[in-house]
């Protein structure tokens, strides 16, 4: 077996041409010169073809190794992306827990007030009762004393009742919201009532900031969805307004407007009339870790969680705008039953 040659056919043609040239030795000069220059040109062409094949082989080998390297790098980048996603996921979980922690803190603060009032009323009532009992035992009780005591009893029991009722109501709201936040359970709930409960659970933050809160939601919209997710979304909108929306000391209005334009879905518009969001931040506002407050404890995850909850469990969409006149508007569309 002769060794393989890519240009076997060309070389055979060249040999035949040389042969022809030898046999044409008697031919006229111009014919011999013509044949010689044709052979020379063909032989150069074959040499050049060989060179071209070598050159492009080399380039293609290079290309192949670059491609391999590229594939390797791509795999590495994909691995890195995977672990970043995992890290992000755990940070999101941590942030959820942290916001639950803040909720618990708020609950404690909020319940402290009515319980404190009830306690001091009860203590005042006990003192008054002891005093009137003493007068009664000494048989030294006047009609005036008794009337004053009766007034005290009426006032304090009224205050105790209303404050304990307030505390009970708060506990009921908090319990619902906290349970919903920790569990991702689906259930049927009245939208307006649930938004009110959520606002109540954010009461301490809202009162501290001093902004007005307006809720416009038709009664009787019943959702079969994930209330915990909705509560967290609203909470994050509100905390976002409180932290970023206003300059210190500036008072504004937060509003939640719910409209039902078509059966089966609902549109919730959350707006504040604060400073608004710069144009170049709007496009990144839902990106994970996007924050303008890294130094002061912003995680950059609040609105990312909103985005995940809305597009995930709630099965809807969310968009952010910052209108000309100022303020920030989040528009949330979601099905009543995702």
């Amino acid at each position: 077996m002769s060794s393989f040659n890519l240009f076997d056919a060309e070389e055979k043609s060249l040999e035949q041409a040389e042969d022809l040239r030898r046999r044409l030795e008697q031919a006229p000069g111009p014919v011999r010169d013509g044949i010689a220059s044709l052979i020379e040109a063909y032989s150069r062409s074959v040499r050049e073809q060989r060179r071209l094949v070598r050159v492009s082989d080399r380039l293609q080998a290079q290309l192949a190794s670059v491609n391999q390297e590229l594939g390797k790098r791509k795999a590495e980048a994909e691995d890195a992306l995977e672990s970043l996603k995992a890290a992000q996921e755990s940070l999101v979980q941590a942030e959820k827990l942290a916001s639950l922690g803040a909720l618990v803190g708020g609950v404690a603060h909020e319940i402290n007030t009515p319980v404190g009032i009830a306690l001091s009323c009860a203590s005042h009532l006990a003192d008054s009762t002891a005093a009137i009992a003493k007068l009664f035992e000494a048989d030294d009780i006047s009609v005036d004393d008794f009337e004053r005591f009766m007034a005290t009893v009426k006032d304090t029991t009224g205050l105790i009742l209303s404050n304990v009722e307030r505390a009970a109501e708060l506990i009921r709201s908090f319990k619902q919201v906290a349970v919903d936040r920790t569990s991702s359970e689906r259930r049927r709930f009245d939208l307006a009532a649930y938004i009110r409960e959520t606002l109540a659970s954010l009461g301490p933050h809202l009162r501290q900031a001093g902004h007005a809160v307006r809720l416009a939601c038709p009664d009787g919209i019943v959702m079969d969805s994930y209330p915990g997710a909705l509560s967290q979304v609203l909470g994050n909108f509100i905390m976002n307004s409180l932290v970023h929306g206003f300059d210190p000391g500036q008072l504004g209005t937060l509003s939640i407007t719910v409209e039902q334009e078509e059966a089966g879905s609902v549109r919730l518009v959350y707006a504040d009339d604060g400073k608004g969001v710069p144009e170049d931040h709007l496009g990144r506002i839902f990106d994970p870790f996007f924050t303008t407050r890294r130094g002061s404890g912003g995680s950059g995850l609040g609105l990312h969680i909103v985005y995940n909850l809305v597009t995930g469990p709630l099965g809807g969409s969310v968009a952010a705008e910052s209108p000309e006149g100022g303020g920030t508007v989040f528009t949330l569309s979601m099905p009543l039953s995702p």
């Binding site: 071209l52 492009s56 082989d57 080998a61």
Partner: peptide, 13 residues
């Protein structure tokens, strides 16, 4: 799915 110039020449042959 991929071949270089030598292989292309061999294929043509």
């Amino acid at each position: 799915t991929y071949f270089n110039s030598s292989s292309a020449k061999a294929l043509m042959n």
